Simulated assay, not measured.
Amino acid sequence: MDLLLQHVINAVSLGGTYALLSLGLAIVFSIIGLINFAHGELMTAAGYTIFFMLAAGVSLPLAIVFAIVAVAILAMGIERVAFRPMRKADMTGLLITSFAMSMILQAFFQNAIGARPRAVAMPEALSGVVNLGSVHLGIIPLMSISITVVALVALNLFLKHTVMGITMRAAAEDIDVVRLLGLKAGRVVATSFAVSGVLAATAAFLWVAQRGSVDPLMGFVPVLKAFVATIVGGLGSLTGAVAGGMLLGIVEVLAQVVLPPSMVEFRDAFVLGFVILLLLVRPQGLLPAPTGRRS
Rank of each mutant, 00 (worst) to 15 (best):
D2C: 02
V8C: 02
L34V: 15
L34S: 04
F37N: 02
L42E: 09
M53E: 12
A56L: 15
V58L: 15
L60K: 10
A63E: 13
A67W: 15
V69R: 09
A72M: 15
A82S: 15
R84S: 07
P85H: 13
P85N: 13
I96G: 08
I104T: 04
L105Y: 08
Q110I: 06
Q110N: 04
N111Q: 06
A121P: 10
P123W: 01
E124N: 06
A125Q: 00
L126M: 10
V135Y: 07
G138H: 00
I139C: 04
L142A: 01
I145D: 03
S146P: 05
S146D: 10
V150D: 13
A151R: 11
V153A: 01
V153C: 02
N156W: 14
L157W: 09
H161D: 13
G165P: 14
V177T: 12
L181S: 05
G182C: 12
K184C: 01
K184V: 10
V188E: 10
V195K: 08
G197E: 11
A200N: 14
T202S: 14
F205N: 09
L206K: 05
Q210T: 11
Q210M: 12
R211G: 04
S213A: 09
D215K: 07
V221Q: 00
V221M: 08
K225C: 00
F227C: 00
G233Q: 01
S237A: 01
S237G: 03
M246H: 02
I250V: 00
I250G: 02
E252I: 04
L254M: 02
V264G: 05
E265W: 03
G273I: 00
I276G: 08
P290K: 15
P290L: 14
T291M: 10
R293Y: 03
